[in-house]
Design a protein around this nucleic acid. Structure first.
Lengths: 232, 232, 232, 232
DNA sequence: AATGAATGAGGGTTCATTCAT
DNA sequence: GATGAATGAACCCTCATTCAT
């Protein structure tokens, strides 16, 4: 995870003032929570374990997060939702073709989310949200809504500029989302089992994403581009 | 689910010998467990509920399955039955274009698996296999391997016949699988939450599958077909 | 308490069938709960203690009562609310003067409630209901409403028959209730302390009730009775 | 409460020397504790709330009171201050009839105690003294003994002057006390719940007290007064 | 074989109390 | 003296599992 917090190990380099610790606690707890949630799922993770891994007592956790669900929400915000500001900026300043933009977007998403522990969040939400509506709702608001909005803007740009043929946006959005969700689910469930000996080649996520972008863009692009196609 | 077991409702048409009931018990319990595991996940399903839905007492369940985990494994294994014999035959006798075949294949799959309770198995496997690697392995052998083989054959047919451009089969296979897995996960997790007011239109699975086939085939088809239409 | 349940001690006289125990459990638990609630208050009583005193495990208690509050409600119903049917019958068949009825009523109430452990319930409700609205509401419904209704009927009878002067029933009801509540509160709070050496005579509840009835009835009775006063 | 301590609001009119604040702390804490204990009971009041309301931190509270129980005891002791000197004077100089005196006494008591926060102390003592016998003993000494003595003097005056019939003072005293205690308990416990819709009229304390005085005095007064008016 | 009463090890959460700063 | 972060022992309640009937 990129905003990695100081681990709870007492380095003893400096006395580590109590003040300092307080500031670090939420981050340490969220880090511990993220890895445990990913490892064992939301329901199966005990808050005491999270606290332990963060090097504090169970009670301390509740000093910073009012409940287990709130802890989860904080983890989502810290690890996924926070990226959209940056990505929206990238969209606004992007210069190249929309196809490149889609390709870049998918790669970025893989690098920043898919390849990191954060992808475990997505997996976990897909797996357990039916049991924890609050979690589903949080994820919808914080991730799906902004994600959909961004993808919609990108596709619209492609259509407006004549790069893409006219599309039913409501569904084509999911043409981009689906492979990303799939590859995450795969990585966290079948992946560890399917790459093993004798079962054919494992699914390399980056190649899959790249390949998926190729096929997808071919499907979206205007077969008779106005002047010059963005792909030679 | 295909190997549907006699439901626990006591039809009383025939006396239903005790013998019969006894033989049917495990199946009834697994049916009940399947629907509950799909509905609520493994951890959140109480064995008492399973027993109740199967029409027996909690104690009886433990007569047939030594533990909840064993019940879970039995449920998944029992329900991962292949329908691949039938589908392989359909492939061998199919007459139309490969694009039609792909489209047909995806629709069939939705109708026979995605829209039925059987999709719950897929959801379950994706959700819980990280905790139960044997489950993943079993699913790989029984479903993924034969499924991949079939799709590979289809794509190869398209390439051979010049309908599709040259493709990296190892990855393009997943271009077909990904949306199917995605739509099942969506249906069982975010779907119930995302179709609500104010969050845009709900995702209609059939439209999604159809739309997905369109985009995908456009991406696979040979832009300059050898002579004319793939239809013979 | 009058409907005293078999104590959990294993008398071993008979094998005590499991079935038998099941029937006895709720009563045993309510008995244990009553004495503990009275001893320590509602909030300060731990359900585990109740279970222990009833000779069962914590889990078993929840087999019979869905929550601590529900256990309390059951105790109220068992020990207080149940008496009103009997008392209403006594009212309907009473032959003597209304003053005698009031006196009888107050004495009965003391004997059946005030002098027994059940009075602890009333004390406890007065003490803790502000913190547990459900408890207050239960007591209101199950005890106060029927109690008020009964007293109102009695007073009305006295007025109708010319034995009592015209009264504002809404408030005179409380002239009867107030001393009963007071004596219970006293018994459970100041009583144990105020009867001690050097602090004057202790308050004997029965004498108090009797004395209270005297003063009260003098205040209620018609000074110029129609023909002959019921009290000489 | 009469010995009201400087509130924690920092008026800043005067610099308020640290010395001053330090001296005022215990009183401010006890004031805060009193209102919270009354509001929510002893167990349900969190020390943090008390500290907050007193404008200090949780740790500071423990600087002045070694434990929550000690705080409670201090609160009760501090607030059971006698107003009896004043009332005894009033008794010695009162000119009217003893009935008027009783009525005046009850009204005064309601206005000065019952209607104020001080009634919370009585509620508190009645509610919790069974857990804290020292509290009961303290209340007995400081309030009950002098109160009883005063009422006894009043009743004796009535008897001596022929206004009241001969009475068993030891018990008649409680005919006056009982309704006062009752109305306080009611106000602090069932009152908030029983005045609600559908449960009959709420109990208005002042009307109750007045009504109670009427009934009571009718019961105490001599039916055949020596000459005429009780005024000498 | 079948039952369902009973168990008891946690689960999330609260809060009086401590103590380093 | 004052703070407030940290603790950990309870608390109510759940539920997989056992076992007497």
């Amino acid at each position: 995870m990129s905003p990695s917090h100081t681990p709870p190990v007492d380095t003893d380099e400096a006395p580590i003032k109590r003040e300092r610790r307080k500031d670090a606690r939420p981050g340490e707890l969220m880090d511990a929570a993220l890895s445990l949630f990913v490892e064992k799922g939301f329901a199966a993770t005990r808050v005491e374990e999270v606290a332990q891994r963060a090097g504090v007592s169970k009670g301390t956790l509740f000093l910073y997060f009012p409940s287990k669900v709130d802890l989860f929400k904080a983890v989502v915000r810290e690890n996924i939702a926070g990226r959209f500001a940056e990505w929206n900026t990238a969209f606004d300043t992007f210069q190249g073709s929309t196809s490149d933009m889609v390709r870049y977007c998918m790669q970025q998403w893989w690098e920043r989310i898919g390849a990191t522990q954060a992808s475990g969040i997505t997996k976990l939400v897909m797996s357990e949200s039916s049991q924890f509506p609050e979690i589903a709702e949080c994820y919808r608001q914080e991730v799906i809504e902004p994600g959909n909005a961004l993808i919609r803007k990108i596709l619209q740009r492609g259509i407006t500029r004549g790069e893409f043929r006219p599309l039913n946006l409501d569904y084509t959005i999911y043409s981009i989302i689906a492979p990303m969700i799939f590859v995450i689910m795969w990585k966290h469930s079948m992946g560890p089992c399917c790459g093993l000996s004798g079962s054919g080649p494992a699914l390399d996520p980056e190649t899959f994403v790249s390949n998926q972008a190729d096929v997808l863009l071919r499907g979206l692009e205007n077969p008779s581009p106005p002047h010059s196609s963005p792909t030679p």
